[in-house]
Structure formats: structure tokens, C-alpha cells
Simulated scan of single mutants.
Amino acid sequence: MDPDSVPQEITTLVGREVYSNNGVFVGEVEDLRLDLDRQDVTGLALHQLNRELFSGEVDASRGVIIPYRWVQAVGDVVIVNSIVERLTGPADEDEEEVAA
């Protein structure tokens, strides 16, 4: 069986560092947001944030939740779209889940 097709426990994401696809540190996964009806991960709750990315936008003690659709790869670290580097706050209702 292909090891990539073996289901992993979602708890294995907790504690992993998150980087943009440009190599910029974003934060560390603290928890996950789940949609229990769809049995799907919808977001990653991050803490230990990169203060340069989130200064003035988010209270550092609270963290953020980024949409799981931004995740490009999961391995030893989590890689997300570089859009997180341009994050200035929720632009519309679709982005509502970004600021926690």
C-alpha cells in the first residue's frame, strides 16, 4: 500500500510549524477547526505567530485560524499559500474565519 494513501490521525498536525510557500515562518499548529457534519478539517488554529506578519492585526496571545484550503502540503512542516504573507485582515465574509 502506498504510504501517502494511509490515513493519518489529524492530531499529528498539532505542534507542526507552518510556513508560507515562500519559506516565511507563519506560526505553529495549536488546534484544528472541524466540520463534523462533512467530517472535514476546515481550518488550522495557529499560535506562536510570526509577529512581523500579524503585528497590529491580531493579539499575539490569541492566535489565528487560517482556512485549510490555504494548505498546500503537509509533511514535517505545513506549507500554506503565500497569501498569508499579504494578510491584512478579513476582506469579506469568506475570509471571516481568518481572524480568531
Score class of each variant (00 low, 15 high):
Asp31Glu: 13
Gly63Lys: 01
Glu93Leu: 13
Gln39Ala: 15
Glu85Cys: 11
Asn50Gln: 03
Asp35Glu: 15
Asp2Thr: 10
Pro90Phe: 08
Ile79Cys: 01
Asp4Lys: 14
Ala99Tyr: 01
Leu87Ser: 02
Pro3Cys: 14
Arg86Trp: 12
Val71His: 10
Val29Glu: 01
Glu95Gly: 10
Ile10Trp: 14
Arg51Ile: 01
Pro7Gly: 12
Tyr68Ser: 02
Thr11Ala: 11
Val78Ala: 04
Leu32Cys: 11
Val84Gln: 04
Tyr68Glu: 09
Asp37Val: 11
Met1Glu: 09
Val14Pro: 05
Gln72Trp: 01
Gly63Leu: 01
Ala100Glu: 07
Thr42Glu: 05
Glu52Cys: 05
Asn21Val: 07
Val14Asp: 01
Val71Asp: 00
Arg16Ala: 08
Pro3Asp: 13
Asn22Gly: 02
Asn21Tyr: 12
Ser5Trp: 14
Asp92Val: 11
Gly23Asp: 07
Val58Asn: 03
Thr88Ser: 03
Arg69Phe: 14
Ala73Thr: 08
Leu32Thr: 11
Ala99Gly: 07
Ala99Thr: 07
Ser82Glu: 11
Val18Cys: 00
Ile79Arg: 05
Ala100Asn: 09
Asp40Arg: 15
Ile65Trp: 02
Leu53Asp: 01
Pro90Gln: 09
Asp76Asn: 13
Ala100Gln: 09
Pro7Val: 15
Gly89Lys: 06
Ser82Tyr: 13
Glu57Trp: 04
Arg62Leu: 12
Thr88Ala: 07
Glu28Arg: 04
Asp35Pro: 11
Arg51Pro: 00
Ser55Cys: 01
Thr11Val: 10
Glu93Ile: 13
Gln39Pro: 00
Leu46Glu: 00
Ile66Thr: 03
Leu53Val: 02
Ala91Asn: 08
Thr11Gln: 12
Gly27Ser: 08
Asp40Lys: 15
Ile66His: 02
Ser82Trp: 00
Asn22Ile: 10
Ile79Pro: 03
Val6His: 13
Leu32Lys: 02
Gly15Cys: 12
Glu28Cys: 09
Pro3Tyr: 13
Ser20Trp: 06
Ile10His: 11
Leu32Asn: 08
Val71Gly: 01
Arg38Leu: 14
Gly63Gln: 01
Gly56Glu: 12
Gly23Met: 10
Glu95Leu: 04
Gly27His: 00
Val41Phe: 06
Met1Cys: 10
Asp92Gln: 11
Val26Arg: 00
Gly75Lys: 12
Asp76Tyr: 14
Pro3Ala: 14
Val74Thr: 07
Val58Gly: 06
Leu34Lys: 08
Gly63Thr: 04
Thr11Lys: 09
Gly63Asp: 04
Ser5Cys: 09
Ile79Tyr: 08
Gln48Trp: 00
Ala100Ile: 11
Tyr68Ala: 07
Pro3Asn: 06
Thr42Tyr: 08
Gln8Ala: 14
Asp4Cys: 14
Gln72Asn: 09
Thr12Tyr: 12
Asn81His: 10
Gln39Asp: 15
Tyr19Arg: 03
Glu30Gln: 08
Arg33Val: 11
Ser82Cys: 06
Val64His: 03
Thr88Cys: 03
Ala45Phe: 04
Glu52Phe: 06
Val80Ile: 12
Val58Lys: 04
Pro3His: 13
Val29Arg: 00
Leu44Cys: 06
Leu34Asn: 06
Gln8Tyr: 14
Phe25Tyr: 15
Ala45Arg: 09
Leu32Phe: 08
Leu46Thr: 08
Phe25Pro: 04
Asp31Gly: 12
Thr12Met: 10
Ile10Gln: 12
Thr42Arg: 01
Pro90Met: 09
Ile10Phe: 15
